[in-house]
Simulated scan of single mutants.
Amino acid sequence: MATLMENEAFMAFTTYATIVILKMMLMAPMTGYFRFSRGAFSNEEDVSGKSAEEKKKLLRTHPDVERVRRCHQNDLENIIPFVVVGLLYALTEPELSTALLHFRIFAGSRICHTIAYVGALPQPSRGLSWIVGMLVTFSMAYRVLSTVLLL
């Protein structure tokens, strides 16, 4: 463990991994906020105690809620691979400046992706931010494989 604490790339990784994980975690309360503020609930138990007419009105989808929910799903599909690959990448002891570039670009791309998704910005803003994050993860995966490939 002491050796890991001396690995600057690993320490940088823990910082940026924590940032993107917290960003991902904040999407759940944001979804709840949009559900309540838009009066759009997806489950019967969310509107228990309401009259049949109120339930009918509240059990619906809303574009804002769906956009935030899909953004959260996209985070799960991209941040989890980043964390796994980024950990392996950091353990290859890459040059700190290169590691920081990878981590910063990924974190920035996910933040831009969220702003583009939730703000309903026109394409290709969301698509570009998504592809940048994916390219960073693939770049780190390439480094891992090229460093430790033992076939």
Rank of each mutant, 00 (worst) to 15 (best):
V118W: 02
L87E: 00
E66Q: 14
F34Q: 07
E6R: 13
L4M: 10
H102N: 15
S37K: 13
E66P: 00
F13R: 05
V68H: 00
A17P: 01
V148A: 12
R69F: 07
T18M: 13
T31M: 12
Y89K: 04
L87S: 14
T14E: 04
E8G: 01
I19G: 03
W130N: 02
M25G: 11
K23Q: 15
H102W: 03
A12P: 00
P122S: 13
R69S: 15
F82M: 05
P29W: 10
F106G: 09
R104D: 07
E44M: 13
T14N: 11
M25F: 13
S51C: 03
S42M: 12
V65L: 04
S37T: 15
M1I: 08
A141N: 03
T98M: 10
N78T: 14
L128R: 12
Y33T: 09
L76T: 07
A120W: 08
T3K: 11
V83R: 03
G119R: 07
L128C: 12
G49Y: 09
G108E: 05
A120K: 14
K50Y: 15
L100C: 11
A9L: 04
F10K: 00
E6D: 12
S48A: 15
L22D: 02
L59S: 03
W130T: 11
L59P: 01
T31Q: 10
S139I: 04
Y117F: 12
A17N: 04
L59V: 06
A99Y: 06
L22V: 15
Y142R: 11
S109A: 15
C71G: 09
M25V: 10
F82L: 08
K55T: 02
E8V: 08
A99N: 07
G49F: 07
K56S: 15
M27D: 02
T31C: 10
P29Y: 09
H113D: 04
F82C: 09
V84S: 03
F34E: 07
A141D: 01
V84D: 01
V65N: 04
T98G: 01
L87Q: 08
L88N: 01
M1V: 09
G32I: 05
L151V: 14
Q123Y: 06
V68G: 02
F41G: 05
E77S: 04
M140F: 02
K56C: 01
T15I: 14
V47M: 10
E77L: 05
L101I: 01
I111L: 15
S129M: 03
I19Q: 07
P124F: 07
R110V: 06
T147W: 00
V136W: 01
G86H: 08
I131Q: 11
H62A: 04
V118G: 03
L26E: 04
P63C: 02
H113F: 15
A116T: 03
G119V: 08
M5P: 00
F34R: 09
Y142W: 13
A141W: 08
G133E: 10
P29T: 10
T98S: 13
A28W: 11
A90H: 05
T114Y: 04
R60S: 03
